[in-house]
């Protein structure tokens, strides 16, 4: 039983560290989101089309 819990602990630890490892690879979606946010600010695109955008979920997604 003790051995089993050791194995489980090692497996969990490695899966958790795998999640952290993913971080090292380039986060393409996050980069795109960051780029869009900056471009909107630089080109001032938020209030395009006259009326204020209908509750743009800017912080989400």
């Amino acid at each position: 039983m003790k051995k089993l819990s050791m194995v489980a602990a090692v497996l969990l630890a490695s899966s958790v560290s795998a999640c952290v490892t993913i971080n090292i690879y380039f986060p393409a979606a996050a980069a795109e989101k960051a780029a869009d946010k900056i471009i909107d600010e630089v080109w001032q695109l938020q209030n395009q089309g006259g009326a204020p955008a209908p509750a743009k979920p800017n912080e989400q997604k």
């Binding site: 602990a9 969990l12 958790v16 999640c19 952290v20 993913i22 986060p27 996050a30």
Partner: peptide, 21 residues
């Protein structure tokens, strides 16, 4: 233990969601 470890996963995923700008 398993539950405690699993509870951490969304936290880690969230931390990776945004780039610092």
């Amino acid at each position: 233990w398993v539950v405690a470890m699993l509870l951490w996963l969304p936290v880690l995923a969230f931390a990776a969601a945004d780039l610092e700008i």
